[in-house]
Design a protein around this nucleic acid. Structure first.
Length: 503
DNA sequence: CATGTTCGCGAGTGC
DNA sequence: GCACTCGCGAACAT
C-alpha cells in the first residue's frame, strides 16, 4: 500500500523487469515438498513401463542420434483449424465420470437447456460477469466455450519450435554456468533455477521468453526491511561469504555492485556466442537479458542474479501463502522450510536512501521456486491432472487470462504496467478461495474463466492485489485507480460480449 | 482416443 | 562432492 512506484514495467515483482514472468522455482534443498503428492502413484507405474522405455531408448539412440533437432525452416505459423473440437471434447469424459462418482457439490445442477452436452454448466455461486441465466445465455455459453477452447489451441506451443529454441537456450545457459564456475570466485557456486512461465508450462503462443535465475548461496546474512511493505531488503554479510566481501558498501551487500560484475561476466561469456545480443541494462532490473532470433522469432533469455538464503522467511511473509485449505497445512509447512531468494531489484531512481542504504543496493524477495512448485502441484487432491486423476482448468484459465491481458495491452498502451504476474497472483488467490478441484472442473472452462475474471476485476476495482507471499505488498499500488478501473471495464466488456477479442 | 515424442527434472549411480 | 544416466510426468503430435 505505500505506493512505491514500481519501476520496471511489469512483470513479476521479483525478477522481471520488462517482461512478464515469474520467478525462481525449484528447491533442491533440504525438505522438498514433493514427497507429499505424486510419489505414491509413481511407484505403481514404474514396473511396467520401465522396460519398454529402455527398449525405445536403446533403439533410438544408436542409429539416428539427432534426427530431430533439425531447425525446421518453416517460419510461418500454420493457421490451425482442426483442433478446437478436440479440446472441447476431451474434457467431457473426465468430468462426466467424476460427476457420477461422487463429490457432488450442493449446487451441482446441470442446466440442460438448449445446449450440447459440453455446455452443461453447473450454476454455481458467483455470477458477476455472467450474463443472466436464461436459455439464450446458455447457448451463448456454449459458443463461448468453443471460443475459449479454440483460443487455448492457438496458444499452444509447438513442439518443434520448443525443441529447437530450448536447445539454443540451454546451450547458452550451460555456457554461462561453466564460465562462471571456471572464471569467477564470487559466482562460482551459482545454482541455476529455471523459472517463469516457460518452465511452469504456462507459456503461451511462442517459446520466446526464458528465465533462469542463477542463485548464489550465502552463508549467514542479516536481512532488514527497506521500506515498509516487506518487499525490499538490505543485506548484511556476517561470517563466511568471503568471496562476496568485495561487493560490500559500508556494511551492506551492494546489489548494484554485484549485479554490475555479474553482468560483465555474462557479457564476457556471451561474446563467444555472437548470435546472442546483450540488451541494455534496465534500471532496477535484476535480469541480464540476451536476445537472438530463432526461426524468425525473437527469443529473450533473462539471466537473473540472485542470492539463496537458507533461513526462515522474513516476518512479512507470516500472513502470506494462505494455502491451508487448498493444499493443506503440511504442504505449507514444507514450502516454508525451503530457502528464499533475493534479487537485485529496486524501484524508483535508486538514489533514495534509508538508514544509510541506497535503494539501488537493495534486494527484493522472490519465491519463484514455491510458485513453480505450487503450479505444478496445484490440486487439492493428489491426483489432480494426473493420468488417473481428473483434469482441472486452473492452468488453462491462467493462460487465457494472460492472453486476454496481453491483447488488451496491445490495444491500449496505458495498460503497460499490468503484467502477467498480476494474472498469476490473481489465480493463486482464486485457488485459495475456490479450493476444491471440482471448483475448477474440466467441464466448466468458460465458467471457471469467468469466475477468475470476476476476481481480477474486483482486485482492479479495489485497487488491491496483494503479493501472494507478502500480503503487505500491494502489486497495484503504483497503478492509478483510473487505469485499474479502465482495465476492469475492458474486461467486463469482453466478458459480456463473449470475448470478441479472442476471435 | 490411444499411442508416441520431446523436454524438464529429480533420483540413482559411479567415479 | 560431482557429472552422467535413467525414467517419469506434462504437454504436444499423430
Amino acid at each position: 500500500m505505500t505506493g512505491r512506484g514500481r519501476t520496471c514495467k511489469a512483470k513479476s515483482p521479483d525478477t522481471k523487469c520488462a517482461k512478464s514472468k515469474s520467478k525462481p522455482e525449484e528447491m533442491k534443498h533440504e525438505s522438498p515438498p514433493r514427497c507429499t503428492r505424486k510419489d505414491f502413484k509413481e511407484e505403481k507405474q514404474k514396473g511396467a513401463t520401465k522396460e519398454q522405455k529402455l527398449k525405445v531408448k536403446a533403439e533410438t539412440t544408436e542409429p539416428v542420434t539427432k534426427s530431430k533437432m533439425q531447425p525446421k525452416g518453416t517460419t510461418e505459423d500454420s493457421p490451425k483449424t482442426t483442433k478446437e473440437q478436440k479440446s472441447g471434447r476431451k474434457e467431457k469424459s473426465p468430468e462426466q465420470s467424476r460427476e457420477e462418482k461422487t463429490k457432488v457439490q450442493p449446487e451441482d445442477i446441470k442446466t440442460t437447456k438448449t445446449c450440447t452436452a459440453k455446455d452443461k454448466i453447473p450454476e454455481t455461486n458467483i455470477q458477476p460477469l455472467r450474463p443472466k441465466e436464461n436459455p439464450k445465455a446458455d447457448r451463448c455459453e456454449g459458443k463461448v466455450d468453443t471460443i475459449l477452447f479454440t483460443t487455448l489451441d492457438k496458444l499452444r506451443i509447438k513442439t518443434d519450435e520448443k525443441s529447437y529454441t530450448s536447445k539454443v537456450v540451454n546451450e547458452l545457459v550451460d555456457a554461462i554456468l561453466s564460465h562462471l564456475k571456471q572464471n569467477t570466485q564470487c559466482f562460482k557456486e551459482a545454482e541455476p533455477l529455471r523459472t517463469g512461465s516457460y518452465y511452469e508450462n504456462l507459456k503461451i503462443s511462442n517459446p520466446d521468453e526464458f528465465d533462469v535465475m542463477l542463485a548464489i548461496p550465502v552463508d549467514r546474512v542479516d536481512v532488514s526491511p527497506f521500506g515498509d511493505d516487506g518487499a525490499f531488503y538490505s543485506v548484511e554479510l556476517k561470517r563466511g561469504n568471503s568471496h562476496l566481501k568485495k561487493f560490500e558498501e559500508s556494511s551492506t551487500l551492494s546489489a548494484s555492485k554485484m549485479l554490475d560484475e555479474f553482468r560483465a561476466e555474462v557479457k564476457e561469456c556471451a561474446k563467444k556466442y555472437p548470435e546472442w545480443e546483450l540488451t541494455r541494462k534496465k534500471k532496477g532490473c535484476p535480469a541480464v537479458t540476451l536476445i537472438r532470433t530463432v526461426q524468425s522469432v525473437t527469443v529473450s533469455l533473462d539471466i537473473v542474479l540472485s542470492l539463496v538464503v537458507k533461513s526462515s522467511w522474513p516476518s512479512f511473509t507470516k500472513e502470506g501463502l494462505q494455502i491451508d485449505s487448498w493444499l493443506g497445512t503440511k504442504v505449507k509447512r514444507e514450502y516454508k522450510w525451503l530457502p528464499y531468494y533475493l534479487v537485485p531489484k529496486f524501484e524508483g531512481t535508486g538514489t533514495e536512501e534509508k538508514d544509510g542504504v541506497l535503494a539501488k543496493d537493495t534486494w527484493r524477495v522472490s519465491f519463484s521456486h514455491v510458485e513453480k512448485a505450487i503450479l505444478k502441484n496445484h490440486g487439492s487432491q493428489k491426483t489432480c491432472c494426473e493420468k488417473e486423476g481428473d483434469r482441472c482448468r486452473r492452468k488453462d484459465c491462467l493462460k487465457l487470462l494472460k492472453h486476454l491481458l496481453s491483447l488488451l495491452k496491445e490495444n491500449n498502451s496505458s495498460f503497460k504496467k499490468f503484467c502477467s504476474y498480476h494474472a498469476k497472483t490473481t489465480l493463486l488467490h482464486a485457488c485459495c478461495s475456490r479450493t476444491k478441484d471440482t471448483d475448477w472442473r474440466a467441464s466448466s472452462l468458460s465458467q471457471c474463466f469467468r469466475l477468475l475474471l470476476a476476481d481480477f476485476v474486483s482486485h482492479l476495482e479495489e485497487g488491491i492485489l496483494n503479493n501472494f507471499f507478502i500480503p503487505t505488498q500491494n502489486l497495484l499500488s503504483s497503478l492509478s485507480r483510473n487505469k485499474c478501473n479502465s482495465l476492469a471495464r475492458c474486461i467486463r466488456e469482453e466478458c459480456d460480449k463473449g470475448f470478441p477479442i479472442f476471435k
